[in-house]
Write a protein that binds this DNA or RNA. Structure first.
Length: 422
RNA sequence: GGAGAGAUGGCCGAGUCGGCUGAAGGCGCUCGCCUGCUAAGCGAGUAGACGGUUUAGAGCUGUCUCGAGGGUUCGAAUCCCUCUCUCUCCGCCA
C-alpha cells in the first residue's frame, strides 16, 4: 500500500507511476474522499473533546451532590451525533482503504518502461547452452522413461497439474531442497524458517495477494484460511504488527515450502511437465532491511539465487522486468531464467524483488533506531530457487545420449555419491 | 471434542461501588549527576496511530488504543454480548 500522505501530496507523480505500469486508475475519487475524511475527523474530534470535558464536569458535580441533568441531556445528543459521524467516517475510511489496497506499488526509476514481457531488458547471461549430439528429450519424457515422474497418476489421484515424483526423482527433489537450504544458511547467512503452509486472510493482505488476486489461490472451505502460493507470505508476515530493533536489521530468512497456485487464466500454458503445477516446491529467500540498504540487498539476494544455478552448472540469464510486466507489490524485480532445452528458451526460475515499504505498510512491520520514530522496513524476497523447475532443468540439461541423466557434482553427496540417474 | 481459568505499556504486575488512570508499583532501558574502577545512589525520561498548528522538524495541542468487534451509559480497562488467542484438566491423535 502506498503512503496516504504521499498520494495526497503528490497526486501527479502517483498518477504518472500508474501510467507507467499501464494502469489508468484515476486518483480523483481518492482525493475527494480523503479531503472529506480529514474534515470529518476534525469535526468529530471537536465534538468528542466537548463530550470528554463536559462528562468530567458531570462527574464532579454529581460527586458534589449537585444536579447535572441538563448537561446529561445535552451530552446525550452530542453522543448520538458523534455516533453518526463515526459511522460515516468508518465507511469513508473503508472506501479509502480498499482504494489504496488496489493501487500497485510505484516502480523504481531503474525499472524500464514497457507494456509486457517483450520490453523486459536482459542484463546478463551465465553458462553455455548445451549442444547435444543427439535429439534431447523434454523432462516429462525423461521422467517417464526413467520411471521417476508420474503425471498420469497425478491426474488420477488429484487432477490436472498434479504429479508424483518417484524413486530417484523424489530423491532429486529432496536433494535440491537440502542443497539450496544448506547453501543459503551456511554460506549466505540466512536463518532457516519452516513456516505453516496455510495462512489467514490478514497475512495474504499483508504481502499483497489479497484483495486483488483471490482467484489465484486455494481457499479452505468454511474458513478464512488459504494455502500459501509461496513461503514469502508466512515468512514476511512473521513480523506483522511488530516494531523491530533497528540494530537487528537486516534479517535474512530462507524457507522451504510447498506452494499452491490455482493458476487461474493459465489454461493451455505449459500444460506438460513440471513447469506449471498447482503444487510445487520452492526455497524462498526473504529479507527485512533498513530503508537505505534495500537496493544493495536486492543485488545480493539476486546473486545468492544465481549462485545456486552456477553451482549446479545450469545456464541462465537475468532480466530486469519492465513496468508493465512487474508484479503488483514490487518496486523492482529481477527474473532469473534457466535454460530449458525442451522450450529452446530461458524459463523463469526465480523472481527477486524489492517491495520497499509497500508490504511493510500493509503488514505494519516497522523498526526503530535509537530515539527515532518507527519506520517501515523494506521487504525483499526471491526464489532461491523453484525446485520443480530446477529438477526439470537438471534432467534436460544433464541428459545423455543413452537416456540417463548425470547428477551435478554438487548434488552427488545428497545421493550418497551416486553419479547418474538411470 | 468436553470442563475450567485468563488476555493491561519492553517485561512483571495493580486497577476498589463505572468518573482527574494512557494507566499505581516494580524490573528493564535511555540521558544527566555523582563516583579511584565496578557496584550502589540521586534526578529526569521511557508506546503507538490519526488529526490540528508548523516551510519542515522539534514543540505544543486534540482524538483514539488496556486481545478484537459490538452494546449499555453523560462517561468503561472496569458492566453486558460475540469472537479470537493462551493456559490447565479430560478425551482423541502423528
Amino acid at each position: 500500500m502506498l503512503d496516504i500522505k504521499f498520494v495526497r501530496n503528490n497526486p501527479e507523480a502517483v498518477q504518472e507511476a500508474l501510467k507507467k505500469r499501464g494502469s489508468n486508475i484515476s486518483l480523483e475519487p481518492f482525493l475527494r474522499l480523503d479531503e472529506r475524511r480529514r474534515k470529518l475527523i476534525t469535526e468529530t474530534e471537536q465534538l468528542k473533546n466537548k463530550r470528554n470535558v463536559v462528562s468530567e464536569q458531570i462527574g464532579r458535580l454529581k460527586k458534589a451532590g449537585q444536579d447535572a441533568q441538563e448537561m446529561v441531556q445535552q451530552m446525550r445528543q452530542v453522543s448520538d451525533q458523534v455516533k453518526e459521524m463515526d459511522e460515516e467516517l468508518r465507511a469513508l475510511e473503508e472506501e479509502i482503504d480498499s482504494f489504496l489496497l488496489g493501487i500497485p506499488n510505484i516502480t523504481d526509476d531503474s525499472v524500464p518502461a514497457g507494456k509486457d514481457e517483450s520490453d523486459n531488458i536482459e542484463l546478463r547471461r551465465w553458462g553455455e547452452v548445451p549442444n547435444f549430439g543427439f535429439e534431447p528429450k523434454p523432462h516429462w519424457e525423461l521422467g517417464e522413461s526413467l520411471d521417476i515422474l508420474d503425471f498420469e497418476r497425478g491426474g488420477k489421484v488429484t487432477g490436472a497439474r498434479f504429479s508424483f515424483y518417484k524413486g530417484l526423482g523424489a530423491a532429486l527433489e529432496r536433494a535440491l531442497m537440502s542443497f539450496m537450504l544448506d547453501m543459503h544458511t551456511r554460506e549466505h547467512g540466512y536463518v532457516e524458517i519452516f513456516p505453516p503452509f496455510i495462512v489467514n486472510a490478514d497475512s495474504m493482505t499483508g504481502t499483497g495477494q489479497l484483495p486483488k488476486f483471490a482467484e489465484d489461490m486455494f481457499k479452505l472451505e468454511n474458513l478464512d484460511y488459504y494455502l500459501i502460493p509461496t513461503a514469502e507470505v508466512p515468512v514476511t508476515n512473521l513480523y506483522r504488527q511488530e516494531i523491530l530493533d533497528g540494530n537487528k536489521l537486516p534479517i535474512y530468512h530462507c524457507a522451504y515450502s510447498a506452494c499452491f497456485r490455482a493458476e487461474a487464466g493459465a489454461a493451455g500454458r505449459d500444460t506438460r511437465g513440471l513447469i506449471r503445477q498447482h503444487q510445487f516446491n520452492k526455497v524462498e529467500l526473504v529479507k527485512f532491511s533498513r530503508q537505505e540498504d534495500s537496493w544493495d540487498e536486492l543485488e545480493k539476494l539476486t546473486a545468492n539465487a544465481e549462485r545456486i544455478l552456477q553451482l549446479l552448472g545450469l545456464p541462465y540469464r537475468v532480466i530486469n522486468l519492465c513496468a508493465g510486466d512487474i508484479g503488483f507489490s514490487a518496486a523492482k524485480t529481477y527474473d532469473i531464467e534457466v535454460w530449458l532445452p525442451s522450450y529452446q528458451a530461458y524459463k523463469e526460475i526465480s523472481s527477486c524483488s524489492n517491495f520497499v515499504d509497500f508490504q511493510a505498510r500493509r503488514a505494519n512491520i516497522r523498526y526503530k533506531e535509537g530515539k527515532g520514530k518507527p519506520k517501515f522496513v523494506h521487504t525483499l524476497n526471491g526464489s532461491g530457487l523453484a525446485i520443480g523447475r530446477t529438477a526439470a532443468a537438471i534432467l534436460e540439461n544433464y541428459q545423455q545420449a543413452d537416456g540417463t541423466v548425470t547428477i551435478p557434482s554438487k548434488l552427488q553427496p545428497y545421493f550418497g555419491g551416486l553419479t547418474q540417474i538411470g
